[in-house]
């Protein structure tokens, strides 16, 4: 029989191993990207357009294309996620319906991203005839971000004790005032956290936007909503297909580093927003 202290040591060792495997892999990945990407990084790389299918020049339009698509996607997501969370938290009385909504959102969250791309291709490009458009890409990214953002907002709203709502009603507020003055400030924290997590995921997506929103070369700043853009993930994909060209590979690492930095900035913003909005939500 193993003694308690031995059991404790084994358990501590296993959890430590799990922790170091997890962080080790992540650190290894980040360190590799930093070392391989740093040589490509310069101001001209960041602020000049790509040339020779990306083998030379920079990634200006790819950064702009990526930011444009995810920012517009975020603008679509906010009202949908907030509205769905308010409806589920404040208006749906049936626990069964609430559960169905939550399960649907979880299921939607688990759908492979390529499926969203195919859906966009069939609905927008084939049926509606929009052609390849960055706006369609934003809509598809927004659909992908909705579950994370809605669930996070909903969780925040549901964690608000009923007594706060009752105090609001007792002060003469109607339901919309209770939602506006008490529930939404509480939900904001979850909304922003979920949105930024969704953005961090969406910014790195290639599959859903590859067929419907992006072109691999020859694009600049779009002047209408039905034009394609180039994004960092699709640019990296295009460059790795030219892996025999060392310049293209170097730029691929550089673009990867920029993408990682963007995701890192968004994740940091999520942490910052979470701590700031925690105070705000405590203000109710």
């Amino acid at each position: 029989m193993i003694s308690r202290s031995t059991q404790n040591t084994i358990f501590t060792g296993l959890t430590c191993a799990a922790f170091f495997i997890c962080t080790g892999l992540l650190c290894g990945l980040i360190i590799t990207i930093i070392f391989k990407g740093l040589p490509a990084l310069s101001l001209s790389f960041l602020f000049s357009p790509a040339q020779d299918f990306g083998a030379s020049g920079g990634i200006l339009y790819q950064i702009l294309g990526t930011l444009l698509m995810v920012i517009v996607a975020a603008i679509f997501v906010v009202p949908i996620a907030l509205g769905s969370a308010i409806y589920s938290s404040e208006y749906l009385r049936s626990h069964r319906k609430k559960r169905i909504l939550e399960l649907s959102l979880l299921a939607l969250n688990g759908v492979p991203s390529i499926t969203f791309g195919l859906f966009g291709l069939i609905l927008f490009v084939n049926i509606l005839g929009t052609g390849i458009s960055w706006m369609v890409g934003s809509i598809i990214l927004a659909i992908m971000m909705v579950p994370t953002t809605t669930l996070s907002t909903l969780q925040s709203m549901q964690s608000l004790p009923m007594t706060y709502r009752e105090n609001g009603y007792a002060l003469g507020f109607n339901r919309s005032q209770v939602i506006r003055y008490i529930v939404i400030p509480q939900g904001l924290q979850g909304l922003v956290t979920g949105l930024l997590i969704g953005l961090a995921r969406a910014i790195g997506e290639t599959a859903p936007i590859m067929f419907i929103a992006t072109a691999f070369s020859g694009v600049t700043v779009p002047i209408s909503v039905v034009e394609p853009v180039s994004t960092l993930p699709t640019h990296i994909l295009s460059l790795t297909q030219q892996a025999t060209n060392p310049d293209a590979l170097k730029n691929a690492w550089g673009a990867s580093l920029v993408l990682i930095i963007l995701v890192f900035i968004i994740s940091l913003s999520a942490f910052y927003a979470r701590s700031k909005l925690k105070n705000l939500s405590q203000r109710v």
Binding site: P161, T163, Y164, E166, N167, Y169, A170, L171, G172, F173, N174, I182, Q282, R283, V284
Partner: peptide
């Protein structure tokens, strides 16, 4: 009107519930 009614009837609950403001 519920709002009209509740404007006439104030209520204080068992546990003090102050808004964190």
């Amino acid at each position: 009107s519920l709002t009209q009614l509740r404007a006439q009837v104030g209520m204080v609950f068992q546990k003090p519930c102050v808004f964190p403001r």
